[in-house]
């Protein structure tokens, strides 16, 4: 055996190593995984191309007013006006309301299931929350219209009586139904399950020694939750909230039932009987739409997609900014 320290006269021939699959089964596995991912990317791209092509006529005829204007009049086929500003704003307003109402509910439920409930109770609570997630949105919409609207209108009226001097609780119509407030509650009901289940998962993976450390330092259960559990879990929790937000922005049928869609921007009068939602507006107009209108609805869909994307980006950016320790 020669010693390895002998000088070599030739330089070594370098070859690039690749972890390629070797066996037939591995090659098939790689092939399936690769085609599936290509397929989904291509599908999304095709949808976007289709939307864009169909939306172009509307963008061309309406210009920037399509997004910022507040008028929708298609009665004169020679002069169609399609402007969805109030719908875009309405979608955002409802989503924000849904988040404000839904996130505390979801976090409380997740905390209860993970840290307070006994085994049986935790299982039952998890089951109920999952059932809520499985509820078809049309059912929630019907419930929202028939059962919840009378109740929530009453709440809104009480809010108006007690706090009506604050502009957001102003109401001049005297009609408290079909408001963004009610739509926000409906959205909250729909996003609670997903935020709960993701938060619960994050809580369950938390290092229990951090919680013990906090309690051993004289922390109460609540201060431990707000100052240790929540900050440590915030990345995952916000991820869950973002998924919920995506659902909130795109929610269609349920809101169609409970919201009065009006082409006039309702900036923040949340208990007023008028609001907007891009997705619900598309649903409401689609049935009797002419070709030109269809183009407008496609354009509205594209705008909704972009808005959702931008909101997600902004949220992700804020999350990163707020968690410097995650860069470690």
């Amino acid at each position: 055996m020669s010693t390895s320290s002998e000088p070599t006269s030739h330089s070594p021939v370098r070859r690039t190593l690749k972890a390629k699959p070797f066996s037939r089964a591995d090659r098939m596995f790689f092939g399936v995984a690769r085609s599936a991912s290509y397929f989904s990317v291509i599908l999304i791209a095709l949808i976007l191309v289709f939307l864009f092509i169909r939306a172009t006529p509307a963008f061309q005829s309406q210009g920037i007013g399509f997004i910022f204007g507040s008028n929708w009049n298609t009665s004169n086929p020679h002069h169609i006006v399609m402007q969805i500003g109030p719908m875009i704003w309405g979608s955002l307003l409802i989503s924000v309301l849904g988040i404000i109402l839904g996130v505390p509910m979801a976090l409380s439920t997740a905390y209860f299931i993970e840290f307070m409930a006994g085994k049986t109770m935790a299982r039952v609570a998890t089951l109920v929350v999952d059932l809520l997630a499985a509820m078809p949105s049309v059912v929630i919409g019907l419930w929202g219209l028939v059962v919840f609207t009378p109740v929530a209108s009453h709440w809104a009226e009480l809010l108006h009586k007690a706090l009506g001097f604050i502009p957001i609780f102003a109401n001049t119509s005297g009609n408290f139904s079909a408001s963004p407030f009610i739509a926000g509650w409906i959205v909250a009901v729909m996003i609670v399950p997903i935020i709960t289940s993701i938060s619960r998962e994050i809580f369950s993976q938390m290092d229990r020694e951090l919680i013990n450390a906090s309690l051993a330092l004289g922390g109460s259960r609540s201060s431990t939750f707000f100052k240790v559990v929540l900050p440590t879990a915030s990345g995952g929790v916000v991820g869950g909230v973002l998924l919920g937000l995506g659902r909130a922005l795109g929610e269609t049928v349920a809101i169609y039932f409970v919201l009065n869609l009006i082409f006039k921007v309702n900036w923040f009068n949340i208990i007023e009987n008028q609001g907007g939602s891009v997705a619900s507006m598309i649903l409401s107009k689609f049935g009797e739409a002419s070709d030109a209108e269809i183009s407008g609805l496609m354009a509205a869909g594209l705008v909704l997609f972009v808005v959702t994307l931008v909101v997600n980006w902004i949220a992700a950016y804020i999350v990163n900014k707020a968690q410097p320790w995650r860069k470690l």
Binding site: D207, E209, L210, N212, A213, S214, A216, L217, G218, V228, P231, T232, S234, Q323, W325
Partner: peptide
């Protein structure tokens, strides 16, 4: 508050 504790694994608050 009167009886402090140090754990087996170092567990500073990561945030």
């Amino acid at each position: 508050l009167n009886i402090g504790m140090v754990f087996q694994k170092p567990n500073p608050f990561p945030t």
